[in-house]
């Protein structure tokens, strides 16, 4: 069992694919030369996956600890949050952490979709 599918039941999968209320949004940024720091926010892991997708001339901006807390409490995915903390701790740099988190979130969203589809 991969970390992406670990501890996921249909209820968790539904939460992963659901948009949280606006008041529970998570603020993210991006370093985009020459424009600088770009502000944004996300309300679901699906949006987060799009934000984190590696780009050759920009870099996502986020606070990993706050992200993990948001996934745990607002999205309602403690296992995902633990996995985020784990891959971030193992990464050699902030950028490497972003890439690892992106892979994790992408797989987790895909797993959630599969689970919901198979559950009918």
């Amino acid at each position: 069992m991969s970390v992406a599918t670990g501890s996921m039941d249909t209820e968790t999968a539904r939460r992963i694919l659901t948009q949280v209320p606006y008041s529970s949004r998570f603020t993210v940024g991006a370093l985009v030369p020459p424009v600088g720091l770009r502000q944004s926010n996300v309300r679901s892991l699906g949006e987060l996956e799009l934000v984190l997708r590696p780009e050759p001339a920009s870099l996502a901006g986020l606070n990993v600890d706050r992200l993990a807390a948001w996934i745990e409490t607002e999205v309602g995915d403690p296992a995902g949050a633990a996995a985020v903390r784990e891959v971030a701790r193992a990464a050699s740099s902030y950028a490497a952490a972003c890439e690892a988190i992106h892979r994790l979130i992408r797989e987790r969203v895909a797993s959630a979709r599969l689970l919901i589809e198979s559950a009918g």
Partner: peptide, 18 residues
Amino acid sequence: EHCFNIIFTNVTAAFAFA
């Protein structure tokens, strides 16, 4: 005018990639 912010972006990027 982006004359000096290349300092911020380049240095910050280097730190980000360690």
